[in-house]
Simulated assay, not measured.
Amino acid sequence: MRSFEELVAEGAAVPTDGWDFSWFEGRASEARPSWRYAESLAGRLARAEAALDVQTGGGEVLDFALGRAAPAVPARTVATEGWPPNLARATALLQPRGVTVVGAPEDAPLPFPDASFDLVSSRHPVRPDWAEIVRVLRPGGTYFAQHVGPASVFELTEFFLGPRPEEARRGRDPEGERAAAEAAGLEVVELRAERLRMEFHDIAAVVHFLRKVVWIVPDFTVERYASRLRELDERIRAEGSFTAHSTRHLFDARRAERG
């Protein structure tokens, strides 16, 4: 294995735009949820007339799903994204498929009229705005999404930050999100949750992951956490990997036909 310094420099240099995780091949792994979100989304898109993908990232998941759904794709498909590098990437990827990509901050109202879409989807939204989701859905329309669950990858978070308070562990609780969705006017048809094994096989993978998935260690920089990175590098070399667990839940919810 290469030196600590070489690996850290590599992990710090890899671009972080988009949600393509192919760089991690052979260096880190994560089990995937049994419901196969992108493939399931393809089936929903094949039956939709007007679809909106919220916080699409670099557009990779929507692009895959539309490819699987073709030729039966929605007559109108729109995606939103707020981070400029991802917005540019999603536009380049999705416009050739006929998708309209709209720049929209994640904490702002959705820039669409009421009842615009019969399908709203999102993979790993930062924070679902249930009122806005209900507003842009047509009566009888569906919200279909995969969310990050509570205490996801907390083994890595706590390695760098120490034990987290109990309220942090309870954030993104699927039952809490169910209650919020129902209060906004959605009927939750299905809610499934899974805890999934992750393994990091070198420190470059850790560095790149923490730069890319910024909420795991919000103040992460190589310089700030140099000593902990070196300690983790030694542990990975001795044990072969660092194990963590992601949490995910699948939302399938429906707006009432009336109201």
Results as ranks from 00 to 15, higher is better:
M1S: 12
R2A: 15
A9T: 09
G11L: 14
A12C: 00
W19K: 04
W19D: 11
D20E: 14
F21T: 04
W23F: 10
G26D: 08
E30F: 05
E30Y: 03
S34D: 07
Y37T: 11
A38W: 13
S40Y: 02
S40H: 05
S40D: 03
L41D: 08
R44K: 15
L45N: 14
E49Y: 06
A50C: 15
L52C: 14
D53S: 15
D53W: 03
D53Y: 08
Q55K: 00
E60R: 00
L62W: 05
A65Y: 09
G67Y: 09
A72G: 04
A75H: 09
T77S: 06
V78H: 01
T80Y: 06
E81R: 05
G82L: 14
N86V: 08
A90F: 13
A90T: 11
A90R: 14
T91W: 04
L93C: 04
L93T: 09
G98A: 10
V102H: 07
P105F: 06
P105G: 08
F112D: 14
L119K: 10
L119F: 02
V120G: 08
S121E: 00
R123S: 07
H124R: 12
P125W: 03
P125G: 09
P125Y: 04
W130N: 12
E132G: 14
R135T: 08
L137E: 13
G140F: 01
G141L: 14
A145F: 03
Q146P: 05
V153A: 05
L156I: 11
E166Y: 11
R169D: 00
R172F: 14
P174L: 06
P174G: 12
A181D: 11
A181V: 09
E182G: 00
A183R: 15
A183V: 14
L186Y: 10
E190A: 15
L191G: 08
R192N: 03
R195D: 05
R197L: 15
F200I: 04
A204V: 01
A205D: 02
F209W: 12
F209G: 00
V217S: 10
T221Q: 11
S227M: 00
R228C: 00
L232N: 00
D233Y: 10
R235E: 10
E239L: 02
E239G: 03
E239H: 08
G240L: 05
S241L: 11
S241I: 06
S241C: 10
F242M: 12
H245D: 05
H249D: 01
R254I: 12
R255H: 04
A256Q: 02
G259V: 07
